[in-house]
Design a protein around this nucleic acid. Structure first.
Lengths: 71, 71
DNA sequence: GCTTAAACAACAGACTATAATTAGCATTAT
DNA sequence: ATAATGCTAATTATAGTCTGTTGTTTAAGC
């Protein structure tokens, strides 16, 4: 993951936006999603090409539909 | 990817459904998406936990919005 | 205002697990 | 018979985990 892809930037921004709306820290979100603290940061910064299963985990932890993370 | 996850099954089914609607073979879709023929098969059979960038490639090749692959 | 502390996030590096690519052959349609 | 798909196996690339450190933001105290 060198040059950041547009879709990853959009996704990461959306995660951060909703996470803050819900008043969660990266660490709290990570715990709810059963993912690592630093990994959430990497996703928000578009440094990793997230897989579908983890997309779903984050959507569940944020209590939103997956589709809301992709618009 | 041993035990197939529900979301991957749903995604794979949806890809296959739309691919057939468009009258494409796996090989033709693979070519349009710049992915390998057998990989498309694996996705349709829910054998791989696809990443967001490849989700987008397939959506573009099928000429649908990503969200349509997730409903 | 200006500290200080604490919580939060960015970043680096090393490691492990697995996604992604590919070839070859078997099977199932049409 | 041909085209399309399934399946196996092996390799390469990278997603995902984790520890530790550095930087930034926030809010309290004086």
């Amino acid at each position: 993951m060198d040059s950041k892809q547009n879709i990853l930037i959009k996704f990461g921004d959306r995660v951060r936006e909703i996470r803050k709306e819900k008043g969660l820290s990266q660490e709290e979100l990570a715990h709810k999603a059963d993912l690592h603290r630093t990994y959430i940061g990497m996703i928000e910064r578009a440094e990793k090409n997230i897989t579908l299963i983890n997309i779903e985990k984050i959507a569940n932890a944020l209590e939103v539909n997956i589709k809301e993370l992709l618009e």
